[in-house]
Design a protein around this nucleic acid. Structure first.
Lengths: 343, 343
DNA sequence: TTGTAGGCGTTATCAG
DNA sequence: CTGATAACGCCTACAA
């Protein structure tokens, strides 16, 4: 006669042990796949756990274990490339035996709060995606955190935190070289001075344009950041002036797409009248109706290296932080082509 | 002479107590703002906590307290409207004294895994955003979870979980009525039969079109879901056929935007030649270059009601789950206008 | 292979 | 207002 199980609260390992008439540690051994239990016991325990609806208690586990197997991630959900990096972080973390804990930044929750939250779960390391903090602020954050901290985005080697860094200068330069190769002579670059990554990408543009002997005009949009609106605003300014350049190099995909919207609706055909390039290779760039030539960030590599960097410093706390470059690669799609009139 | 603090591990309440020569519980009282400590003690404790870099230990806290103050949220990062709902959930949860724990679904992590993860942190309730599970699967999930579960998306009142439900039929009907009022007679509706929300929105279209005596054509795109690609595909089909309808009603903003891309690049001017409507009022619909007429989901209300529903059932576990409708409201922007030729 | 004892950081209870 | 003590669920040692 089967015993009626009235589930009052969530069952614990002790409940499983009592249920089977065995000891608690034996249940623990089975549930974390440790050696030291007979095959028969193992099966009985696993079966009982399933039947009773057992769920491990992370709180108890992290309390008991001195070192936790968690990586904390702070991010801004609206940033286009971050969902993909997060997927990659999940996969890479699982490969190293770590779990992921997320904390989102919103207008009402700044990065300090999110980091504080992650620390309260005793994460073994913090990954900050696309932080808009200055170096001094990040340094303070990392020092305060007391756990390895990895910035995924733009930054330089320093003594406080690791940086996994997509080489913006090189990425933009590739776009310029591609356009030069197609015969373009008059480029415009869309620059948003407020972001940490902006200076490096601008440098990529100006130096590559100079090397190729091109006329490179810089359209500076303040205040709007790396957003579609900034791209739209820049496109409106280009349309208001004459003549149009033959190609527009944007600082990221969101800007490029914002510009393409305005250009398309103004009747400018892309790429016949104007070529456009982006940066990041977000899923929007890959849409068949957009098909944007863009410097791919390789989100899989970014996520993997960020996790590797974190795990390295968790396991060898003495090591100094590193700066790990990830080279972008230009993905050529149909938003770029020869300039009009072949000039 | 200030004492040198060598930070070996993260300090605990005991460290603060020892540092000040007081008892551990007193520190606890101060740090959770409970009554029973003198103002002077309070200040000393808070000061020491700051200086020592104290961070509370959620694991220990949730172990000690029988009921946790956490809401677990599962979501898909790529879904356009979910970041906004999450921001609203954070704010609403904070208002009720709850924290939020996130778990993302990826192709490699299904919703069962995410829920299991949230339960392992002993969340007091689970909020599932835009689940693509069937009712039977959700019911199994909720029953297994053993904590109040709230589906934010499309569903019906049932005995296992709460539903906070944006009324898709009414939202789409409002778009149809708006277009009818502008004088449109030939509409197309973009239907993706694979999604749970699809049937309801289609019903909104057909019934409103019938009421207004319009010619309503349904373009069915299988397989691509509520994505930009589905919208692009539908637009290509419309362009291939003749004549064009004068307005396109899409099942969500992503579809509408995918269609607008193709239409704009094909030289169809919006709204002069063709009006377009969406659903959700995502941030993309609000971009100045898109400016899409759309049924607003009111993400703030969705998040608030989801949290309220969860808290209600946490605090009164006996109550049956409810279905809470959130009425969408049509936001009229410049993607809709009178039909060409005034017909 | 299995069982016993103890402690992780926090909070609840109760006594001073 | 403050302090001692126990307990939450789990894991590690060690003993049987």
């Amino acid at each position: 006669m089967a015993e009626e199980v009235v589930r009052v609260a969530r069952p614990t390992m002790a409940d499983i042990a009592d249920h089977l008439g065995i000891s608690r540690p034996l249940v623990s051994i089975v549930l974390r796949n440790a050696p030291g239990a007979s095959e028969q016991t193992r099966q009985r325990v696993l079966r009982a756990a399933r039947e009773l609806g057992y769920t491990p208690h992370q709180g108890a586990r992290s309390l008991r274990q001195s070192r936790s197997r968690h990586l904390g991630v702070t991010f801004v959900p609206a940033h286009a490339s971050e969902p993909e990096i997060i997927e990659s972080v999940y996969a890479a973390a699982a490969g190293h035996g770590y779990q992921v804990l997320l904390s989102v930044q919103t207008p009402a929750r700044d990065q300090h709060q999110t980091v504080e939250e992650l620390l309260s779960y005793r994460c073994a390391a913090i990954l900050a995606l696309g932080s808009e903090l200055t170096h001094a602020q990040l340094k303070a954050l990392a020092d305060r955190a007391g756990v390895p901290t990895v910035l995924v985005g733009t930054g330089h080697r320093n003594a406080s935190y690791d940086v996994v860094h997509s080489d913006g200068q090189h990425g933009i330069a590739q776009a310029v070289e591609h356009l030069a190769g197609l015969g373009h002579r008059h480029l415009a670059y869309l620059h948003c001075p407020t972001l940490p990554a902006a200076a490096e990408r601008l440098r990529g543009f100006t130096s590559a344009a100079a090397r190729a002997g091109l006329h490179g005009r810089v359209v500076e949009v303040r205040e709007l950041g790396y957003t579609e609106e900034a791209g739209s605003e820049a496109a409106r300014r280009l349309l208001a002036g004459t003549p149009l350049p033959t190609a527009l190099v944007a600082g990221n995909d969101q800007q490029a797409i914002g510009a393409m919207w305005v250009l398309a609706r103004a009747g400018v055909s892309i790429p016949e009248q104007l070529s456009v390039t982006g940066y990041d290779d977000t899923r929007f760039a890959r849409l068949s109706a957009v098909d944007l030539t863009t410097a791919s960030q390789d989100t899989v590599a970014l996520g993997q290296r960020a996790v590797t960097a974190a795990v390295r410093r968790i396991e060898q706390p003495g090591l100094p932080p590193r700066c790990i470059p990830v080279e972008p690669r230009l993905i050529i799609r149909s938003s770029t082509g020869p300039p009009p009139g072949g000039s």
